[in-house]
Design a protein around this nucleic acid. Structure first.
Length: 492
RNA sequence: GGGCCCGUAGCUCAGCCCGGUAGAGCAGGCGGCUCUUAACCGCAAGGUCAGGGGUUCGAAUCCCCUCGGGCCCGCCA
């Protein structure tokens, strides 16, 4: 036994050695002409129990899930991407010697190819009556327990492959996410948006107030950061004449992981020239309907999905940030309160944000405390105070406000959109006001972005959506870890 | 950062309160069985009880520390 080998693994390595000694390759190169297992299943369905169809030969390949030996007959479950099919092995069909050899050489977890004919057992189970069996890859380590699977949450995350191979449900979650992301792209592609990729490694992490990951470039002989949002590079593209653009990719924030936050998360940001936030709301609502339709198409019988999809169907309630906050908190004239007054109000409701936080931060804290918990459906919060949103254009008719909407699902934020601020001097002023008010959790000052605005950014609407959270809400996932394949874990 | 909880065989879990030879099922080994499907029956095997320290005649069990994880709260516009 090698140092980290368990007795089980030792046993299975011995089988590999036995196969090789026998001239049979335990890791062959290919297995041609296989069909998905559901083809066998449907061919079997037509048969009478206890019969088989000698007319057609099928070749299937997949993972061996269970072997039920029964003397001169044995049953095995083979699982592939299309599902599960039972293999029927008979000593009189395979020959006593080969039959015995197969049963002693094969273990649950092995990848095998099988050739045979469709049949149905006496009890009616669709099966493949096997004429020939080929080991395609020997599993040295045993799979998780066949009935309970892999339960330990830590193991499920650290060794995602084990969860996936043990649980069709986890593979299904992965498929649904993949299809939903594809649908987002299809929707924006169809609306004439170009998909682009902007830099992940940046000199200044801008576009949001969050702590970046800092790393080092040997080439630059200095620090670089991982982006915390996609916003500013995308808006620069509109200065350059690109009119509709989106990026669907990861952003990184140096923060804790909990049920709704992950230090690396997937964002969808889209920018649309010659449009405002009313246009953007229509675009987003159209996307939500498409996603709701798609997810119900994918999982029509899943009650959590039915509930999730229903959330994403308009009409959505609209809540005015200031009115809602004033009503819920019993405070009047929130917009004319000083930073210190707002700080005291936030303190009074238990917020422990730093003393020197910005006016916008205190307003957000108050909103979070008084209004957010009341959302029981997807809600659009609109027209935030200017101080909360340094990159948004001031409201055309409501003084002290910006043209913005924020989208909330019950329990967490899904996205954020506004008519983009395109006045370079006002942008510079707004950045500096925040910097002046407070130190480290403000938006990083991106001087080059202000310089870009001086060349003219068209009137523009932009949106940022949390892709992981949208998938959560649509599928009824309780934790972001259910929709992110590899959440950040400590090395062990 | 604070509080509570968890870590026992490859996997799923008992045992911990109230200290006294470390258990079961699955998987694996050997034997039996020609229609099972969490197959079944018999036999044998499998352990750094997360790690370290302490209390005790004796610690998986009680105490302390460390590591990893979970949940809640805080922080993260």
């Amino acid at each position: 036994m090698t140092a980290d080998e368990t007795p089980l693994e030792h046993e299975r390595r011995a089988k590999v050695a036995r196969l090789r000694a026998d001239g049979r390759e335990p890791y062959p190169w290919d297995f041609r002409d296989r069909v998905p297992s559901d083809r066998v299943r449907s061919a079997s369905a037509a048969l009478a129990p206890g019969t088989s169809d000698a007319g057609q030969t099928f070749r299937v390949a997949g993972r061996l899930k269970a072997v039920r030996e029964h003397g001169q007959t044995a049953f095995a479950d083979l699982e592939d991407g299309a599902g599960r099919i039972q293999l029927l092995l008979r000593a009189d069909e395979l020959g006593e010697g080969p039959y015995r050899a197969w049963l002693s050489d094969l273990d649950p977890g092995d990848l095998v190819g099988a050739e045979g004919r469709a049949s149905r057992t006496r009890r009616g189970e669709p099966s493949l009556e096997v004429r020939e069996l080929t080991l395609l890859a020997k599993a040295i380590s045993p799979p998780p327990e066949k009935y309970h699977g892999l339960q330990d949450l830590e193991e499920r995350i650290r060794r995602r492959y084990l969860e996936l191979l043990a649980s069709p449900e986890s593979r299904e979650r992965l498929r649904v996410r993949s299809e939903l992301v594809r649908e987002m792209r299809r929707y924006l592609d169809g609306a004439g948006f170009w998909e682009v990729e902007t830099a992940i490694l940046v000199p200044v992490a801008s576009g949001a107030a969050a702590a970046p990951f800092v790393t080092r470039s040997n080439y630059l002989d200095g620090e670089v950061r991982l982006r915390i949002s996609l916003e500013l590079p995308l808006k620069r593209l509109l200065v350059g004449g690109v009119e509709r653009v989106y990026e669907l990719a990861k952003a990184f924030r140096n923060e804790d992981l909990d049920s709704t936050h992950s230090p690396e998360f997937t964002e969808l940001e889209a920018y649309w020239a010659y449009a405002d936030y009313h246009d953007m709301r229509r675009l987003v609502e159209g996307l939500f309907v498409r996603l709701a339709d798609r997810v119900e198409e994918l999982r029509p019988d899943d009650p959590a999905v039915r509930q999730g999809a229903a959330l994403f169907r308009p009409p959505f309630p609209t809540v005015d940030f200031v009115e809602a906050l004033e009503r819920a908190s019993g405070t009047s004239d929130v917009l004319s309160k000083s930073r210190d007054e707002l700080r005291d109000l936030a303190r009074a409701v238990g917020s422990t944000v730093p003393e020197n936080s910005s006016t916008g931060t205190f307003l957000d804290k108050l909103f979070e405390h008084y209004v957010e918990p009341t959302f029981d459906r997807i809600t659009f919060v609109v027209d935030h105070p200017v101080a909360t949103t340094p990159l948004a254009k001031r409201h055309r008719s409501k003084p002290g406000r910006v043209e913005r909407f924020e989208i909330f699902a019950p329990g967490y934020e899904l996205g954020n959109a506004y008519t983009e601020l395109n006045d370079p001097d006002e942008q510079e002023r707004r950045f500096r006001e925040q910097l002046g008010e407070r130190g480290d959790d403000t938006y990083a000052y991106d001087g080059d972005f202000v310089r870009a605005l001086r060349f003219g950014l068209p009137p523009t609407a932009g949106v940022g959506l949390g892709v992981d959270r949208i998938v959560m809400a649509l599928t009824g996932a309780a934790s972001i870890k259910d929709v992110i394949l590899y959440p950040l874990v400590r090395a062990r």
